[in-house]
Nucleic acid binder design. Structure first.
Lengths: 210, 210
DNA sequence: TTTTTTGTGTAGCGACCGCTAGAGAAAGTT
DNA sequence: AACTTTCTCTAGCGGTCGCTACACAAAAAA
């Protein structure tokens, strides 16, 4: 590991270039981002891109991983850190409203928008699986909440997770269509009104955020 | 229409061909649908397509009109026919759940999916305007309901419309990702729990809305 | 130094894109 | 019949796509 590379060293920073690629895919989607766009933004030639990242699809795969570990990490944090399922889901939606409209990077969720109407079936399927996996993660967290008595007995965790996922996807779409953070916050306020409250026995930590 | 055409008659039915084009754009989106795809599905040569429909963009425009008048017409009907804003919005979502998952045609909403990540700015803008116009229509109907006392005073019709729109867009996305009609019905059930109810005394014009 | 290894630039490959010229085919009109 | 009008077919235009062969440049190793 400590030994130096043998040949001519790379003339660009790999992480910086990857971030540039991420922005391009995030803004324009997989298909609509051309290798020509990528090389221009990354400031390198096509052969350098292929040598450093493989082909376009492989580069996109690496971009997905980077996205999941940075801009897309808020969901996992919310699920891990909040005490109740309700707090977790509300925080997911609220941070989505913030991140999706944040200045300085493309709006919306890369996973939702980067490959809709994609002619590369593998890419389309990868992202569809990712979206469904996210909803499954929501369901799992909600099921915990049901087991803990935060939610009424018989609450269908999968249905509730799909509902949260639908709102999440709607937030992403609307952030692309020009909605402001305040617009989306209002949507979240309304969405959380649908949250099932446990009958006044086991409920604890249920708090209405301002 | 009394006099017959002079030259060689068209060898295909224009409406049938247009419907075929609609299905292609609906399934694959604007960019990902090639003229080659279109001519194959429509059963005609490229010159016939261009003679009958103009270029690809013009054809897509005609497809949008046809969609709005057929598969996409349920929203307008719901808004026009239901007595209350709540009933109208609920019917919009419920019929969306049904139409988006209906067998025999592509899933989801053409307007939402056909041009996400589009490299033709005019097409992208056209569809974004359409989506925002739909939400504005919701807002207008909801405002009527507020005026009629169906909803609490001070209800923000724009916010509520955006919420319904977000759920609508989420339904569309999930129908593409494989959700069944039953899945989406459950989402609608939950979504409607967020609907603001007028306090018992204030429902003066709840049945006289129009 | 020379040799080896690896990255970079030019230049262009075959495939597909949206689109169309031009010749022939099929109808009405005279 | 001949002529006019319109559609259809073959073939291919210029442009862009993702990707790469090849020669050269720049580093470590010998």
């Amino acid at each position: 590991m400590a030994t130096k590379q043998r040949g001519r060293p790379r003339s660009f920073d790999r992480e910086t270039a990857l971030e540039k690629a991420l922005r391009q895919f995030w803004e324009h989607g997989y298909e609509a981002t051309t290798v020509s766009d990528l090389t221009r933004e990354m400031g390198i030639g096509a052969p350098s891109l292929y040598a450093a990242f493989g082909d376009k699809r492989t580069l996109f795969g690496e971009v997905l991983v980077r996205y999941a570990g940075s801009y897309g990490a808020f969901g996992g944090r919310a699920l891990a850190e909040e005490a109740t399922a309700r707090a977790a889901m509300e925080r997911v939606l609220r941070e989505a409203a913030a991140v999706f409209t944040e200045p300085g990077h493309p709006h919306g969720c890369l996973v939702i928008h980067a490959a809709t109407n994609c002619t590369t079936p593998e890419v389309e399927q990868t992202l569809r699986k990712q979206r469904n996996a996210n909803i499954a993660t929501f369901a799992s967290r909600i099921q915990q909440g049901v087991a803990a008595g935060e939610l009424p007995e018989g609450t269908d965790a999968a249905d509730l997770a799909r509902y949260v996922g639908a709102v999440f996807q709607g937030l992403s779409q609307q952030s692309r269509d020009g909605a402001t953070r305040e617009d989306l916050e209002a949507v979240v306020d309304l969405a959380m009104r649908a949250w099932p409250e446990a009958s006044a026995g086991a409920s604890r930590g249920a708090r209405a955020a301002g």
